[in-house]
Nucleic acid binder design. Structure first.
Length: 422
RNA sequence: CGGGGCGUAGCACAGUGGUAGUGCGCUCGGUUCGGGACCGAGAGGCCGCAGGUUCAAUCCCUGUCGCCCCGACCA
């Protein structure tokens, strides 16, 4: 894509009301636009990254056996009354209709998915089953904060699984943990499975997936020697204690919760009277689990975990563009035309092999500004074609996470890029 | 929801009881051209909104709305 066609602009000045790193950088680089407190529009660059994260999550959920669907965000009050959550979930947006009727704007979907699955599943033979969706969620947070980390409207992947035995549920729950860790790893994050409270969902312990960063909202006690971690809200250990798993000294830290999985047991199936016939013809209890990943929050967490003083440093897998190609004009107009032609050709060649390139073709912008924009936007690889780079033998190559640039021959660059991104 | 801070040009900010400023950005002209250049000219404002005090309010008072931060809360 040509930069000159991109309608968003980067901003040199820092937005005064964006204190958190993710809000500041995503806003400055033109990835998101804040519409209200806790409500953001996703702009072309931001949406590209969000879609990549979404694709990774979708692939991992499909691999786990989930079937994707799309439930309603506008939900009937009766369902929330039936689960006794209409009055107890304090973040529930309640929408009055002109008819006098009331609706909920879904903060989650147990109240919709449970009766849905119930309507199709009649026998133990139809289970186990896992369904998921990627959908906008709404929560009436008293205090939205930290940019896209805690919004009132956000994109979430929510999966629900149904089982005829506790053993089967637990086996799936463990597989889900592995799928979650794989998902976050593919997004460039080292997430830790953390024991946490079940909140309003469940009296049991739930498992959070925490990304350790100073911007985190959650206080953790964790072990750097192994994978042990606990949220301090339920921790049985404290900083300085010996790790119950490996014996190393536990440390206090902060994390951003990017995922959370729950054992719901019969909390919702019971409310809707959902049971199936077992092999003996008798009614059988159903075990349910739910599994969430906040996608917009995940993008924010990646920014918090991966940036420097100049901008975002996107992992290769989720960068809006993998290559940021800069062409610099020369005093010599014929040479400038040649530079542009070579850059266009490289852009097309890269596109032909599936590599997404943002080509900063702006004619009236000086080099320094283009470099600053490249650093801010944060593509993993910056390529420059200029009078200088051609004199040095071809294309200047600089990785966002590194400091040194090198020269790569025009003929070799596509293969090198492929290798770099593989 | 409790506490604190801030609302002035697109953005960042200054300022004054007497009709509004700087920097960046934007437009035009020129000089520049590898880390956010420079010169000149120009456009751009319900000083968040409402009420009050005053001859006069962007400024003082009250209320309200909005945003940010701390806390509480967090499926």
């Amino acid at each position: 894509m040509r930069y000159s066609q991109l309608f968003t602009k980067t901003s040199k000045t820092v937005p005064s009301d964006a204190e958190s790193v993710n809000a500041r950088l995503l806003t400055q680089a033109g990835f998101v636009d804040q519409v209200m407190a806790g409500v953001y529009s996703w702009l072309p660059l931001g949406l590209r990254t969000l879609r990549k994260v979404e694709t990774i999550v979708r692939e991992e959920m499909n691999r786990l056996g989930g079937q994707e669907l799309l439930l309603t965000a506008l939900q009937p009050k009766e369902n929330w009354m039936k689960t006794e959550r209409w009055d107890s979930v304090d973040v529930l947006f309640k929408i009055p209709s002109q008819t006098g009727k009331e609706y909920a704007l879904g903060p989650t979907a147990e109240d919709i998915v449970t009766p849905l699955v119930q309507s199709f599943v009649r026998s133990y033979k139809d289970l186990p089953l896992a369904v998921y969706q990627i959908q906008t969620k709404f929560r009436d947070e008293l205090r939205a904060k930290s940019g896209v980390l805690r919004g009132r409207e956000f994109l979430m992947k929510d999966m629900y699984s149904f089982h005829t035995s506790r053993e089967d549920f637990e086996a799936f729950y463990e597989k889900a943990k592995i799928a979650y860790l794989a998902t976050f790893a593919r997004c460039g994050l080292n997430a830790k499975v953390t024991e946490s409270s079940g909140g309003a969902f469940s009296k049991k312990i739930s498992h959070e997936f925490q990304v350790e960063t100073p911007a985190g909202e959650d206080a953790l006690v964790l072990c750097r020697g192994c994978s042990f971690a606990q949220n301090t809200e339920i921790a049985t250990t404290k900083e300085g204690d010996a790790c119950p798993t490996c014996g190393a000294v536990l440390v206090a830290s902060k994390g951003i919760e990017v995922g959370n999985i729950f054992d719901l047991s019969d909390r919702f199936t019971k409310a809707f009277g959902f049971s199936v016939a077992g092999p003996d013809g008798e009614k059988q209890e159903i075990f349910m689990g739910c599994y969430g990943i906040g996608l917009t929050r995940l993008v924010g967490a990646i920014v918090e975990a991966s940036h420097d003083e100049r901008g975002i440093v996107w992992p290769k897998t989720v960068a809006p563009f993998q290559v940021h190609l800069i062409s610099l004009s020369s005093k010599d107009s014929a040479l400038t035309a040649d530079i542009l032609a070579k850059a266009d050709a490289l852009d097309r060649t890269l596109a032909a092999v599936g590599i997404e390139t943002l080509h900063d073709d702006r004619a009236d912008v000086r080099a320094g500004e283009k470099f600053a924009d490249a650093d801010l936007i944060g593509a993993p690889l910056r390529l420059v074609i200029s009078e200088k780079s051609l004199a040095a033998g071809g294309v200047e190559w600089k990785e966002r996470s590194g400091t040194d640039a090198k020269s790569v021959g025009m003929d070799a660059v596509v293969d090198e890029v492929k290798t770099f991104l593989a």
